[in-house]
Design a protein around this nucleic acid. Structure first.
Length: 926
RNA sequence: GGGCGAGUAGCUCAGUUGGUUAGAGCGCCUGCCUUACACGCAGGAUGUCGGGGGUUCGAGUCCCUCCUCGCUCACCA
């Protein structure tokens, strides 16, 4: 890399599209993002590892703002740690996304007039594989386009041979430990996706439906029992009616039978204290074991039959054990249509007593929103209770923290009530379940490598048709991507456990909690110490952005319009801890103005600064003798120090010290918007607005002082760029290269330069604050008196001379610029006292006053009004203050420093009151 | 229905263990094209801190209650 600085490269406008692709390629060529296991302290190296595994986007996904936000957050964190000297690794990858991907391909072939069943399993999987191979790289390319500093040599895919190996290993291990079992029970069934779902995949949503009251006649003709149901069509699968054994209305009927209408089946009345709430509805419950999870429990308790009356597609059918319960006219009818017809039929039988409006939660498929049906079937389950225990303990013991804090309670609540995980899916796209059944002897074999003959009888075997839940591969992600189950994997040793997990709260249960359980189950350790749950990208009406709603923003559009840095800056600056990011999809100009404006400002600061600093190398800051530093120099260096400290405080600490978060550090760090604001404030409001302005005269006058100013400028800007690099990597890299700093240790890329260090030797210098006050006061006078910009404040600025021991000769300035320049150069003592002349008085916090006689433009009335208003306000505040100070409750009980501060304030306010009173007398004689 | 969280300037949010006259960004108003930047500069306005009660010398901050939103869990048929 050439280090000959030249300002000629700096165009008037920063053109991101011209810079970004080339810069990113340079980073890749230099292996900037590639991590080395041997450098990790865990492998004998000298760098702390810092690892983030990317939540893998679906392999078919196209980048949206949610990805943009998620990956920018991760990139900011990983770039920060990389500069801090960690061996930083960000593992990228994609998820095969079982149902989602299968749905996409099924839609494609549906357009060709076919179904997957027409194609057959083998052809369908091949087709999907092709599709994924073709399009799967899209989102990863887009992540590169927005600057993500992932280690692409480690790109993983949940359905790759390596990760498939990990999945089989995990399944077999859990089976060996007795934590995987095959269960015959009621699960959630999506009749559109034709698969079972886990509890988490069947989402609740409140709906207003109807509660139908149906009367079932006693078989002996001695009356009837009325039951209530929201799904009358399922009554065809009823096998009993349960009542509370102590219910006076019904207890005498227990043991008798009812005749189930329509099906004409005789069913018993049973007593069950657990499953029946006598206060709800009619106090009698129909029992449908095959189509209701609760009824299944009761059915099991009472050893009842479990007829199935719904086909996989969700239409009425006489399934297992159903005999001919479903009347012929209902066979093949869709469940919702059948509901209507059953209601009509019951009406005809006079069995429908009444219909009430009823609001209740209905579960929907999280992929296609179809109402899911509870349905009895055989599925594989993971026993979760034993796995949940260490995952709970880790959070309770503060080995893992969840930010923002409120999600910890949600996490704990879910784990405490965790239920077994249905992991089999009746899909074709995914990891085939590694279980083989013997046709001859029925032996069930679970195997890592697959078998061709029954190990028991040698008979022919066939593999389980089902595939595993997508999340069964995701929960292994933090270690499967690092080489597990190969215990000799260098990556696994060097980089597990990882550090931060950055994602959205939606997948806290699907993914995060299960990864933690998986980490303990397979690695014996937590996969990370911090879970950072960021908000959602929403539009101005707070609606979540989505392609289907048409309120989305394409990050690639934003990039084309304003550049990647503007995109990144905007989302990070707007991201409060756990807060949502609001953007207006109809007005990208407005939405991304913060980022665009900042990038432009930074570019202009750089352009001006580099032009004025010139091409000649600057001396290192350390070579400047402190006595050479001016007020402004000391001030900006101190501000820089403060900024570094505040950025560090907002971001860190990066990891818990001894593997456990202390109470003090548990909720600190990763406040990205605060970090961003601090860096922005420093470079814009302090470096550019004040320091840069104050050095203008110095930079145009050659000599030693010019070199001091150049050095301080270059140093501060260099530091500012480093602080900003994680957020806006492209523009900072571009500008940083131009800085004429002669320092071989600086390196070629800011992306791997060192993070700025605080220098506590830098003393606080308050004098420049007084300068700023004076300047502000002059500005205010201009505004108050509407002095035209072309016109200097006509009269004089009076201040006292500085030179120690000198007489307090008064110097009169006729030029405001000269005045400001002199105080900035420390030529003036601001601690003098002068109170005579008429005019505007500038009162500095040091207590000294600057008198600004304003010649003819003083508006006496205006001065009077202002003074009166201020005095009025001061009086009330002073009264309150004095009340406080004369209150023994306050003076005795409040902390001494608070009381002292109040007394100090009283002195200042009193003197200010005195001053105002005098002013009023002299100005308007009252 | 259970649990949790939030209501502070027009908008999005900070406000650290109660302690000076409650802040920032954006937006708004006024004046400026001052040769780095109008995607800019300078100045300015704006809050009964959701309502009500309580504890305290002192409450945006702690307690109670009510109202309104949001998140999350849930087999009331």
């Amino acid at each position: 890399m050439s280090k000959t600085p030249t300002t000629s490269n700096l165009a008037a406008q920063f053109d991101p599209s011209a810079v970004e692709p080339a810069l990113y390629q340079e980073w890749l060529d230099a292996d900037l993002f590639v991590a080395h296991p041997d450098r990790s302290t865990r492998a004998g190296g000298d760098r702390e590892p810092f690892v983030i595994v990317m939540p893998p986007p679906n392999v078919t996904a196209v980048l949206h703002m949610g990805h943009g936000l998620n990956n920018t957050v991760q990139d900011v964190v990983i770039r920060w740690r990389r500069m801090c000297g960690d061996e930083a690794l960000w593992v990228p990858g994609t998820d095969h996304a079982g149902i989602a991907t299968q749905n996409v391909v099924e839609k494609q072939i549906a357009a060709e007039g076919k179904t997957r069943f027409d194609m057959g399993r083998k052809a369908f999987v091949a087709r999907t594989t092709d599709f994924v191979t073709e399009t799967g790289g899209t989102i990863l390319d887009q992540l590169k386009a927005i600057g993500s500093s992932c280690d692409w040599t480690r790109t993983a895919y949940t359905l790759s041979p390596e990760l498939s190996h990990a999945v089989r290993e995990a399944f077999v291990q859990l089976h060996e430990r007795g934590l995987i079992y095959r269960g015959h029970r009621v699960i959630h069934w999506c009749s559109r996706c034709l698969t079972s779902l886990s509890d988490e995949e069947a989402e609740h949503s409140d709906e207003t439906g109807a509660l139908y009251h149906v009367s079932y006649p006693l078989t002996d003709g001695q009356g009837s029992i009325t039951i209530a149901t929201t799904r009358p069509e399922t009554m065809l699968a009823d096998v009993a009616v349960a009542v509370h054994p102590d219910d006076e209305r019904y207890k005498h009927l227990i043991g008798k039978t009812l005749t189930l209408p329509l099906a004409n089946v005789e069913i018993p009345i049973i007593g069950d204290a657990e499953g029946v709430d006598p206060a709800f509805g009619t106090g009698a419950v129909k029992i449908t074991p095959a189509h209701d999870a609760n009824d299944f429990e009761m059915g099991t308790r009472h050893k009842l039959p479990m007829p199935v009356i719904l086909s996989p597609e969700g239409s009425m059918a006489n399934g297992a054990d159903a005999g001919s319960r479903v009347p012929p006219e209902l066979l093949g009818i869709d469940r919702f249509e059948a509901r209507e017809r059953v209601v009509q039929m019951l009406k005809h039988l006079n069995a429908l007593e009444k219909v009430e409006s009823h609001s209740h939660a209905v579960r929907h498929c999280y992929r296609c929103d179809t109402v899911v049906e509870p349905r009895l079937s055989d599925q594989w389950f993971v026993k979760m209770k034993p796995l949940a225990e260490p995952a709970l303990q880790a959070v309770r013991d503060r080995k893992i923290r969840i930010l923002p804090e409120r999600w910890e309670a949600v996490y704990i609540n879910w784990l405490e009530g965790i239920r077994d995980w249905n992991i089999s899916r009746q899909l074709w796209w995914g990891h085939r379940i590694p279980v083989w059944y013997c046709d001859a002897c029925g032996e069930v074999t679970v195997s890592r490598d697959g078998i061709v003959a029954c190990p028991k009888c040698g008979g022919s075997v066939r593999q389980d048709e089902d595939v595993l839940d997508t999340w069964f591969s995701s929960w292994l992600w933090p270690f499967s991507t690092l080489g597990w189950p190969d215990q000799h994997s260098a990556d696994l040793k060097a980089f597990y456990p990882t550090d931060d997990l950055v994602t959205a709260p939606e997948i806290l249960f699907f993914w995060v909690a299960r990864m933690i359980m998986g980490g303990f189950a397979f690695m014996g350790d937590s996969p990370f110490h911090t879970v950072y749950l960021h908000g959602t990208v929403r539009d101005m009406k707070h609606v979540k952005m989505s392609k289907s709603l048409g309120n989305g923003i394409d990050p690639m559009d934003v990039r084309a319009m304003f550049g990647t840095d503007a995109l990144r800056y905007t989302v990070i600056a707007g991201l409060g801890m756990g807060a949502d990011v609001m953007l207006d999809p109809t007005d990208l100009e407005k939405s991304f103005a913060p980022g665009r404006n900042f990038v432009t400002k930074l570019w202009n600061i750089g352009r001006f600064l580099l032009t004025n600093v010139g091409d000649e190398s600057v001396r290192p800051l350390a070579s400047i003798d402190p006595s050479e530093l001016r007020r402004a120099d000391k001030w900006i260096l101190h501000r820089l120090n403060q900024a570094i400290g505040e950025c560090n405080a907002a971001l860190g600490p990066a990891r818990p010290r001894d593997g456990v978060w202390t109470e003090a550090e548990l909720r600190t760090g990763l406040r990205l918007s605060e970090y961003t604001e601090t860096a922005r404030r420093f470079v814009w409001n302090e470096l550019a607005d004040w320091y840069l302005e104050s050095t203008k005269p110095r930079l145009t006058t050659s000599g030693a002082d010019r070199d001091v100013a150049r050095t301080v400028l270059a140093h501060c800007f260099d530091s500012a760029l480093r602080l900003l690099q994680p957020i806006v990597p492209f523009i900072t890299e571009t500008l940083w290269r131009q800085l004429p700093i002669a320092d071989d240790a600086r390196g070629d890329f800011i992306a791997r330069a060192t993070w700025p260090q605080r220098d506590d030797a830098i003393a606080i210098d308050r004098e420049f604050e007084l300068v700023r006050e004076a300047v502000n006061a002059v500005r205010q006078l201009r505004a108050d008196y509407a002095v035209p910009p072309g016109e200097r404040i006509s009269a004089h600025l009076v201040a006292n001379l500085a030179s120690a021991g000198a007489d307090h000769d008064r110097e009169v300035f006729t030029d405001e610029r000269e005045f400001i320049s002199r105080i900035a150069r420390c030529d003036l003592d601001l601690n003098g006292d002068d109170s005579e002349s008429r005019g505007a008085t500038i009162l500095l916090s040091s207590g000294s006053r600057l008198i600004v006689p304003l010649g003819g433009i003083v508006d006496i009335d205006k001065e009077c009004r202002k003074a009166k208003m201020e005095l009025e306000k001061l009086e009330t505040q002073l009264t309150a203050l004095e009340g406080r100070l004369s209150n023994p409750g306050f003076t005795d009980r409040a902390p001494q420093n608070v009381v002292a501060a109040e007394r100090q304030k009283q002195v200042e306010w009193t003197s200010r009151r005195e001053q105002l009173t005098q002013k009023l007398v002299s100005l308007c004689g009252s």
